[in-house]
């Protein structure tokens, strides 16, 4: 028997083993039946995650579609006014969609540069002691519950914005952007540091040997080499920002305005769902589920992007 490769060898031996087992002592016995049952149970447990994803998707579609059909998809997605409790209710979620997009873009615009610069420093310059201290600090930042961010935002950020910019109320888009920027920092830093740490030392040595300074090497050789990991970090941050509800709820003011200015009191997709859920009914409640469906579709899009970048990273390291 010629062994062509390891896989076929293992397959052959396992085939042989199963044949042997069938021939030998527990042929069709209780023990074999037990094996089958156990295998079945584990398969079922393995498929639970798939079941959960299907369940969530199906439930969201079933409960989200009716209101969209009733309101009309164009009026729903591009309607500029949300007045769910008015005598003539209007269900346009464009303000929420735009707020979520602006808010996330703002958070990324602040959070990514800070996170990126921090991770280059931590990965390439910092002494082991500083690195591990900063990593536990970042871990703490990641672990702080979102309501605590909301609370500190409410009592520090909101009055601060009111005083500095001299506006009647500090709760609004800007406050939400700053809170979100802080909340996405740890995901960006953690993932970028991992990607930068994985860059082969040879690349850097070659660049240094050619006369580049360390800073030039790190920014022009290491960073491009880790770019798909860093891109994945950014996408992860986007996902976190767009899905955050409680902290935003506490600082964004929560009035369904179009996000025309940074100080406008606004409502995000996430907070639109949670702020009316408790007392909603009828079409209003159904419309909330439709908002959740829109949010879910956004998240799926981001997931697909994340997968794309991570795959780029994987194929490179192989």
């Amino acid at each position: 028997m010629v062994i062509t490769n390891k896989k076929s060898y293992i397959k052959q031996t396992t085939d042989y083993n199963t044949k042997l087992q069938k021939k030998l002592w527990y042929k069709g016995s209780k023990a074999q039946r037990l094996e089958h049952i156990v295998h079945g149970i584990f398969l079922l447990l393995g498929l639970i995650t798939v079941g959960c994803v299907l369940l969530i998707t199906i439930y969201l579609f079933i409960s989200g579609i009716p209101a969209i059909l009733k309101i009309g998809i164009v009026d729903f997605l591009f309607g500029k006014e949300w007045a769910s409790t008015a005598a003539e209710p209007k269900y346009g979620i464009l303000p929420f969609i735009l707020t979520s997009i602006y808010g996330t873009a703002g958070a990324v615009a602040i959070g990514v540069p800070v996170g990126f610069m921090t991770s280059v420093y931590l990965s390439k310059y910092a002494s082991p002691k500083v690195k591990s201290a900063m990593q536990s600090a970042v871990g703490l930042l990641a672990g702080i519950p979102s309501v605590v961010y909301g609370l500190v935002g409410m009592l520090v950020l909101v009055p601060g914005i009111r005083k500095i910019f001299n506006v009647p109320d500090g709760a609004g888009l800007l406050a939400a952007i700053i809170v979100l920027a802080i909340m996405i920092l740890p995901s960006i830093i953690k993932m970028s540091v991992t990607a930068l740490d994985a860059v082969p030392k040879e690349y850097e040595h070659a660049s240094l040997a050619l006369g580049a300074t360390p800073t030039e090497t790190y920014f022009r050789v290491s960073v491009p080499a880790a770019k798909s990991g860093i891109a994945a970090a950014v996408v992860l941050g986007v996902g976190r920002a767009i899905g955050e509800a409680m902290a935003v709820m506490m600082v964004a003011g929560n009035v369904p305005n179009m996000p025309d200015s940074l100080f406008q009191s606004v409502r995000f997709l996430t907070t639109a769902v949670s702020s009316e859920m408790a007392y909603s009914n009828g079409l209003q409640r159904q419309a909330l589920f439709s908002i959740a469906l829109v949010l879910f579709l956004f998240i799926m899009l981001i997931n697909a992007a994340l997968n794309f970048f991570l795959k780029g990273e994987g194929s490179k390291s192989n």
Partner: peptide
């Protein structure tokens, strides 16, 4: 599952 925001978990 790990990418779905908690508010959606809450709804479902």
């Amino acid at each position: 599952l790990s990418g779905i925001p908690s508010i959606i978990y809450g709804l479902v």
